[in-house]
Design a protein around this nucleic acid. Structure first.
Lengths: 201, 201, 201, 201
DNA sequence: GATGAATGAGCGTTCATTCAT
DNA sequence: TATGAATGAACGCTCATTCAT
């Protein structure tokens, strides 16, 4: 009687996954545009799904946020890994880093800006993204330290200095540039050259 | 309304100022503890005043927030100026900077963390605090650049690197240390020595 | 969101319209009973819906008020038009006018009584209702003026005199009759005969 | 020890009456300007007395409103009586009536407009004002009825027709004239001549 | 599974009224 | 008596979440 539907089970499953994907992608876009405190109803409307659908897929808004963050972590992590793996110098690596950040700037900005108001899981995303770069960074920087072209300082400090500088510009983008312009595009080279100047012996 | 009663006119004024102060100080503490989006009712309860009292002193919550911020700006600005004016080396100056940040760490953390969700006036506070240090920083750093002990880089880049590094540790305090411990206390020296190592020729 | 479910899509729409209708009708009744400044919570309670439901259907209380007014305008306008169109004498027309006013007396009383504290749209409702009657009035009265049975005075003045008289009794119903009794029922004939006496040559 | 103050008792009493008067007069002015639902704090500020003073003189705002109304009733009643007593024709009487209404138009407008949202006592004021005119009206109109120059209709109906017409224009002043212009000044003559035309045989 | 109407706790804000001075 | 700071109940409105269909 039941158990048998017009659509095959897998078709339904695909539909379900599609809806889920649509919600996550829309939430990603809206979060990037307006920050994480957008009402769930707005996301539903923009995604073209019912308000209730969000809660059918994600028990709470928190869960949606976490999924979006984790998705973002995977995406940017992969991208970073891709671009970083063939970099043989700090300069190249950081150039690629900036390139990726520019690609994802809007959402990345929200992440570092609102991270402390986000669910705890946001930290994992944040940490994962950073450690992807950190991994590649440590490889190239240690080689350069050994070569004697870079100051002998703890790798993590060198890395945190870089991240601090970049994040500082991102977080204060309203101060550094017009609100719609990419800070990375505008200041990336300056940040990079300053940083390289600092770490070189 | 006459403005002159037998006595006690000023007593009431003092009481009013006391209440205002109590609200501001409570708000300051709660903001530091839980961030700027605490409900007004929580502040009222903690301050031991009625909910309505908040609005008798501050027309909107925004006004309260701005007052707290501006108060904070004055306090920390004065303190920074005090400690900074006699510093004759970058090292001393930054030590004092860290000292002050440690004193005000909890609130300063919320300020840099939630700045972008705060009323526009928050930016003035933020900018004022930074420029106080920037002023003293540029004096000592330029002298050292001239002396040839510090790399010849634009002052603002040197400063932003420092701030970026410090803010990075503050913003990610949950990552770097147990939530109740001061990141500055724990990592201050490391930050300072790394930074000094970086800027020196 | 697809817009076509197996069935019951329209069932929900009907239910929604029912709730909306329930809110409007309750608001209509309560406004008639207690005036337009009843709290939204009272309307919700009386309508048997949650407080929030009101705002799910009407973004602001103002919108609800306007909807109720516009609904009322349609209802009474249609009714007036219906009854008036076959009237061939001033006497008949005004009799029908009074009849309709008696039907809607409680709400009509609030409308003319609180009109100046209502949203601007209330004026349109008010004006629309009056002009429906005015239209029919001018037809019959001008014919009678031509026939020489009614004094030759500007139509609008004749009409305003009638409205003024009727509204005066409505607005001062507490003075003219016990609060629950219809003033129109009690004084309608007297108003009508007086008015007819006045306008006739 | 006590019982003896620097100021004589009567001085104090006079001051008290002055304050009371100042409150009533200010409330009168503000009510006329903005309607009866102005916050008590606004009246206090405008009157130059403390907020509490209002409640020292009037237990509730209701009581103040009633006092203002009663004061107004006395003032306008006296004025009406003054001007009316020497009128020997309906025309003259109604002219004087209009003159007085124009003098007090702003407040009178609020009274008839918001009467039903006012404390019950407002009715007495309203009734008293009307009956003052009614008294003089009945004298002159009855004489004219006897003379056969005015239609033989119940005096109260003739009077209510007049009041209805005038109030209709007042209540709908927004429709008839620019908001700051006196409707009485603009339409008074038309109202009067229409009315006289109607009542004459 | 998807829907979207309904829910209700919670928010910032207003203001008549109280009361210590 | 006059003061004005403090009060707190009430208001319109928001939004994550529920649940009958």
């Amino acid at each position: 009687m039941s158990g048998e539907s017009i659509m095959g089970e897998s078709t339904r499953q695909i539909q379900k996954l599609n809806t889920r994907k649509k919600i996550i992608e829309t939430a990603y876009r809206i979060f990037a545009e307006k920050g994480f405190s957008v009402p769930s109803s707005v996301i539903a409307k923009e995604a073209g799904v019912s308000h209730g659908s969000i809660f059918a897929h994600f028990p709470t808004m928190n869960d949606l946020t976490v999924s979006v963050l984790s998705d973002f972590g995977d995406k940017i992590g992969t991208r970073l890994h891709e671009l970083a793996k063939n970099c043989d110098s700090t300069e190249n690596l950081l150039k690629e880093h900036l390139k990726v950040l520019e690609e994802y700037e809007a959402f990345y900005f929200r992440l570092i800006t609102e991270k402390n108001m986000l669910p705890e899981e946001a930290r994992y995303t944040f940490a994962a993204v950073q450690s992807t770069v950190a991994f590649h960074f440590s490889i190239v920087i240690e080689r350069e330290i050994e070569k004697g072209t870079v100051k002998k300082l703890p790798t993590h400090m060198l890395y945190n200095t870089w991240l601090g500088l970049v994040h500082y510009y991102l977080m204060n983008k309203d101060f550094f540039s017009d609100s719609n312009e990419s800070v990375i595009k505008r200041y990336g080279e300056e940040l990079l050259s300053t940083y390289l100047e600092l770490i070189k012996i």
